[in-house]
Design a protein around this nucleic acid. Structure first.
Lengths: 329, 329
DNA sequence: AAAATATATGGTATCGATCCCACATTAATC
DNA sequence: GATTAATGTGGGATCGATACCATATATTTT
């Protein structure tokens, strides 16, 4: 791999001139430019990004922190970001926390040390340690999925989406509705969605049966077991289930089928996520499309905007959502 | 952010000594080491990775090129790699080609320029331009999913997996079997799986009906339409379908359900992929588990091995597979 | 006690770019 | 035609680390 010095010598100019050609900056005569470009083409020269970064403090790399890379939600998010970032010549340096909150902090530090030009964090919690770290970081930053004051956010409208979905079940004449949620430390998915469910039930003066409210973790098996508990833990059964993610709903449906409950006649089911297969289940699953890919794009756009304009006012983007009413309700 | 020079001054030693402490190299007195470590802790000093990389030519970054980040296959692969790489302090720089073959070449170049310590390529083809580029690259490299001479490979046993699956359908007394494949330019998924199907059919002297062999692309919709063509394009119907990926099978199943064919009584269906939902379909899908996560891990291990031992002999790892026989056949 | 070796430390060059300033030449303005 | 401004080019310093060599002292070996 050749260096700028060699290119300069071959083209009979100084390194400065080559640098000017490379960056299209300052004055360069047409003649010199052509000679330099010719040599660059002939030698397949590509400037060292390390040297460049050391000098300019820019890396053209964006750090992306996700709680997992296995799920559709995450991969769509990343795909959306990549779509926007690649267009501006940025690449993604991936950091996977495996749902480990400690690691969120570690990676924030690591990415900063790696001099990424910006960070996008798909957050799973809003605890104080995280908030403090984010504010101290001094790197352009966008957080997806959790509202944190003082930093830019791309937010899903968890509360209203969950409310609409609950309302839908109620409008379908359901009076006995179960709920499969997750840890409330996850404010968006755990707390807000549950709160919306509770509020909507209360506003419609519908009783909430405690045994029908179950907490699970983020996988299909866990949804299966939550459904099992709902069926076993009380004498009566609900006629509808609200699961906070598609995977939980899929697990729940699987349990129901195996135990000869008909969906939706014996039990209706609805969830949030709009996973690709939700449409291809039997029956197709009623769900909310959060358009994760769009969320990733929005986050990336926000970040690009901050990078270009150097501004550090934090912005909030509240994303829309679409109710996909299908045969499971 | 402070520099090594400042740390040296604060600790009353030279930059060289600080560097020795940081890298645990050469001779450092206990006394000096302690003073330096104290200052490092107090100032939260972290050495600039750019400067270090510029000097050492090492980045602790591995470039990963994938054809998409949306699918389960890819995200599992990446998850597996991350698992192994993170353990050795490497991070993943992601490059998504969006199924664009040109971009594979571009990204290989870009990653090299970015001085990644190694590259893992989840390849979708084996054309000459790619092979040439790979050989010219001079960066430790592992290719997943396609066999390319002279470079290290982690391979799925596409041929035998497809053979076993075809054989399974035959053993279930099927004599009329359709096939939904993809472009044969993808040697592994397109060509080998099809060839195994054809060979197995021939070996069992079962006639192959041309209209029942359809080519699709990698999504659910495409599987749906391929199934539609199979049903429409001839007077007779097959009694079983082999789809080369789960998503194609899911699409096919959806078509069958909508048109009141019972799976597996009217039409059996089997595929390759072992996607998470395959287990939760109605009926559960018979498929082959390639253990993509393991593949990612193997590829990363192979790469780590090359990096440590500096050796450049190319190795081949042929992965096992598991037939998951479920109710769809 | 001298020679050889191990331990400890610092200084300078270097990696490969960009930035800034000095200087030369050409063009524009009065 | 003199002054100012625009254009073009090169050289040295710099980013922040490591590599290598020189030198000083402590410890072993003969």
């Amino acid at each position: 791999m050749s260096t700028i010095k060699e290119i300069a010598e071959m083209a009979g100019v100084s390194r400065s001139t080559v640098s000017r050609v490379l960056n299209d900056s300052g004055y360069v005569s047409e003649d010199a430019r052509k000679r330099v470009e010719k040599v660059i083409k002939e030698t397949d020269y590509m400037p060292s990004v390390q040297a460049k970064s050391l000098r300019t403090k820019k890396t053209k790399v964006i750090g992306v922190i996700v709680p997992t890379i296995r799920t559709e939600t995450s991969s769509r998010l990343v795909a959306g970001m990549d779509h926007v970032l690649a267009a501006s010549g940025y690449q993604i340096l991936l950091a996977n926390t495996n749902q480990n909150r400690e690691k969120e902090l570690e990676f924030l530090q690591l990415l900063k040390v790696r001099q990424v030009d910006g960070i996008i964090l798909a957050a799973t919690n809003t605890n104080q340690a995280l908030v403090d770290k984010l504010k101290a970081l001094d790197v352009p930053l966008v957080v997806i999925g959790q509202e944190i004051d003082g930093v830019s956010n791309v937010l899903y409208d968890d509360y209203h989406a969950a409310k609409d979905l609950t309302q839908l079940l109620i409008e379908k004449e359901h009076k006995r509705i179960g709920f499969i949620g997750v840890d409330e430390k996850d404010r968006a998915v755990g707390y807000l969605r549950k709160q919306a469910f509770i509020d909507t039930m209360n506003q419609n003066t519908i009783n909430i049966e405690k045994n029908w409210i179950q907490e699970a973790v983020f996988d299909i098996q866990s949804g299966y077991r939550a459904m099992e508990r709902i069926v076993h833990d009380s004498n009566e059964r609900p006629t509808a289930i609200f699961a906070v993610t598609d995977r939980l709903a899929i697990g729940a449906m699987q349990y129901l089928k195996q135990h000869n409950y008909q969906v939706p006649t014996d039990m209706a089911i609805a969830s949030i996520g709009a996973s690709e297969v939700s449409e291809h289940m039997t029956p197709p699953l009623t769900t909310v499309d959060y358009q994760n890919e769009l969320a990733g794009e929005e986050a990336a756009k926000l970040l690009m905007h901050e990078l270009i304009n150097q501004e550090s006012v934090s912005k909030k983007v509240m994303l829309g959502y679409r109710l996909l009413i299908r045969d499971s309700v």
